[in-house]
């Protein structure tokens, strides 16, 4: 698998990361190096091996269905760049 300039432009857009046109080529090269390095793993024969999801032997912890949070809009909105009443206010999103 390898990425070209267009792939990088697209992935950058999806991730909302600005990459200047001049940087697309070098970024593609860097990413291809990383992918190539990771792809060495494909050389290992994994037929019949279950995917490993963790090495700690832990299972997913579950909470009880109890309300322990909320009720503090000011805390939640403290870092908001803009607010109106208890709403976040963001640049208009038009569907």
């Amino acid at each position: 698998m390898s990425l070209d300039k267009n792939d990088v432009r697209r992935v950058a857009f999806l991730a909302r990361i600005r990459v200047d046109e001049d940087d697309l080529e070098p970024v593609a090269r860097d990413l291809n190096n990383i992918i190539g390095w990771v792809e060495q793993l494909a050389e290992v024969d994994t037929d019949g091996v279950e995917p490993l999801t963790g090495v700690t032997g832990m299972t997913l912890k579950r909470r009880d269905d109890v309300v322990t949070d909320g009720g503090d809009p000011d805390k939640v909105l403290r870092n908001a760049p803009d607010r109106v009443g208890d709403f976040y206010a963001v640049p208009k999103v038009v569907e």
Binding site: D65, V66, V67, T68, D69, G70, G71, P73
Partner: peptide, 25 residues
Amino acid sequence: SSQAKLFSGSPTAFGAGPNSQVSLV
């Protein structure tokens, strides 16, 4: 139908004031 949200302890009731049922999660 549950009291709290799927991944946080904030409540799910309908019709509460804006952002009053929100955790930092």
